[in-house]
Simulated assay, not measured.
Amino acid sequence: MNTTTRISTAERLGRSFGRGWRAYVRGERRASNWLVSKGVPAAGATALVWMVKLVALGVLLYTTFWLAMLLVCVMVVAWTARNADLGEELPEPEWRNGPAGFGLYTYDGFRIDPHVEDD
């Protein structure tokens, strides 16, 4: 039996996500401190960082909305194409008695076989 414990994929992904989040927070704090060092008040730097976050969220939601609308349009077109009778062909001619006697008639009543009027 192996005594070395192995971490699961979920734990590995969680740790990677945590490292990424900590790096993001450090970068945000560094940007805020840089703004303060340039003379922006601390409250103003915090507000500016939040405004950037909100603008990024707005752009993300705007893009997501239009992608969702595109997906809905594609689904409507696919549904319409599936339910359309584009491949519907006219009925085949059939042999029957009609106004010009027994013969081959189309769906709208015209005789299409060669026939002799004297019959």
Rank of each mutant, 00 (worst) to 15 (best):
L57C: 07
Y62H: 08
N97M: 09
F110W: 06
T4Q: 12
R29C: 05
V55I: 11
A78T: 05
R96T: 12
T80L: 12
T5Y: 04
W21T: 10
M1C: 05
L61Y: 06
L61K: 03
W66H: 14
P93R: 02
A31K: 04
E89N: 05
R6T: 15
N97V: 13
L35Y: 02
W79G: 02
A56Q: 12
T4K: 11
R26A: 13
L61F: 13
A78E: 01
M51Y: 01
T46Q: 08
D85V: 08
N83V: 05
S32L: 12
Y105K: 06
F17N: 10
S8Q: 04
M75Q: 02
W79Y: 11
A42T: 07
R29D: 14
G109E: 06
Y62V: 02
G109K: 03
S37F: 00
V72L: 11
L35K: 01
T63D: 00
M51W: 01
T64C: 03
Y105V: 05
L48D: 01
L61N: 01
V49G: 06
E88F: 07
M1N: 07
E89M: 08
W66Q: 09
W50C: 03
P99M: 08
F102S: 11
V52H: 03
G98K: 00
M75D: 01
V25R: 14
D113L: 04
L67M: 14
W21Y: 14
P91A: 14
S32I: 15
M75T: 03
E92D: 12
E11A: 12
L67W: 11
S16E: 14
L90W: 05
N2G: 08
A56F: 02
T9Q: 09
E94Y: 02
W66K: 01
D85S: 10
L60R: 08
V72M: 07
C73H: 08
N97R: 05
S37T: 09
E88I: 04
A45N: 03
L71D: 07
D118I: 04
M75E: 00
